[in-house]
């Protein structure tokens, strides 16, 4: 069987990357939503189940995963605005500039949110003492 992967036989442009990222983040968000429903379902079972689930969610791995979730949401919604502007007939001639704006804005928002979300307690030991600036959460 031969795998015909689109885009390996065609040159990539900004629009290609924008579309692929939109698809990937869209799929990831659907995956997240199913997990989210599952988690919410378990939160409502009993106070013990709530505590247990919250303990699991505060695990550093989930906190780092949340930064990925933020990145997916931010990119998907900003690129959604870009596609909306194209559909409204305003942006069809500026899609490339808009794409770089989307990437730049997503990056800034992810860095700002990432500082807030990152599990800094990972570095809360002897090895990293004094290396982490005090203004970080």
């Amino acid at each position: 069987m031969r795998l015909d992967i689109p885009f390996t036989k065609y040159a990539w442009h900004s629009g290609t990357i924008a579309w692929l990222l939109h698809r990937i983040t869209g799929g990831a968000l659907i995956f997240y939503l199913t997990i989210h429903v599952w988690v919410t379902h378990h939160l409502g079972k009993s106070p013990e189940a709530f505590d247990q689930m919250m303990k699991l969610l505060m695990h550093p791995a989930f906190r780092i995963g949340e930064i990925g979730l933020l990145a997916a949401i931010v990119y998907h919604s900003l690129n959604g605005v870009r596609i909306l502007l194209v559909d409204l007939g305003i942006g069809a001639r500026h899609q490339e500039q808009m794409f770089w704006w989307v990437i730049g804005l997503s990056f800034v928002l992810c860095v700002l949110g990432g500082i807030e979300l990152f599990p800094w307690q990972l570095f809360d030991n002897e090895i990293f003492k004094g290396l982490i600036p005090s203004w970080l959460p």
Partner: peptide, 26 residues
């Protein structure tokens, strides 16, 4: 149309077919 804009990059006459497609859908 999935707004990938390959057609705009490829057109040797510098036409913007995506704009035409969105104009028709509007």
């Amino acid at each position: 149309c999935r707004k990938i804009f390959n057609c705009v990059e490829a057109c040797p006459k510098k036409i913007n077919p995506t704009e035409a497609i969105t104009a028709l859908s509007r």
